[in-house]
Amino acid sequence: MIGNGKQDMAVVVVRDAEAIGAVLRQALESAGAEERPGLERALAVVAGAAGAPDAEVRGRWAGRRIRAGGHQGPLDAVAAVKALRRAEPGLSLRQAVRLSREAAATEAA
């Protein structure tokens, strides 16, 4: 077998939920009565998104990249992996396969 056998992923999950939440909380402090319900709902949405597992965040990202590449079939199909690698040429085959599987699992959930 070729390779070192590591399952390293080159895709880093970036989460801005804490920073976005801080900005929303600051806005809530000075919000009028009409704005408060919307800002409170936005804070709840940000809190929910912050708790998503990394695999789900990667899966959503990969699914968007696959669909943007024109693939409309199953997200874990060979054609989906090809579309993902065309969209992101720096991904290895192993990484693209794993990401497409995460995308399919995220879509199914």
Rank of each mutant, 00 (worst) to 15 (best):
Q72A: 11
K82Y: 09
A27T: 07
R15A: 06
A22E: 12
M9T: 13
K6E: 06
E40Y: 01
L24T: 09
E102R: 08
H71L: 03
G70C: 08
V45A: 04
A108Q: 14
D76V: 04
M9G: 13
Q72W: 02
R64V: 09
R60D: 15
R15D: 05
Q7P: 05
A77Q: 12
D16N: 07
A31M: 01
G73W: 12
A17C: 06
R67Q: 05
R85P: 09
R58Q: 09
A52H: 03
L91W: 09
Q72S: 11
R25S: 11
A49D: 06
V97M: 11
G70K: 10
G38L: 10
G69H: 09
V78S: 05
L91N: 07
A105V: 10
G21C: 06
R64P: 06
W61R: 00
H71N: 14
P89V: 08
G59E: 08
E40Q: 13
I20L: 04
P74V: 11
A68P: 06
G69M: 15
H71A: 14
V14F: 07
G21V: 06
I20M: 03
R41A: 10
Q95K: 11
G32A: 08
G5W: 08
A103D: 11
A44V: 11
G73E: 08
A109I: 07
A10I: 13
V12T: 15
G38W: 04
A33Y: 01
G3P: 02
V46N: 07
G21Q: 02
G51A: 14
A109W: 01
T106I: 00
G51Q: 05
G63F: 05
A52S: 08
A103T: 11
I20S: 02
E40V: 06
E88A: 04
E34C: 06
D76L: 08
R85M: 15
R94Q: 15
G21E: 07
A96C: 08
S30W: 00
P74M: 12
L39F: 05
A42I: 02
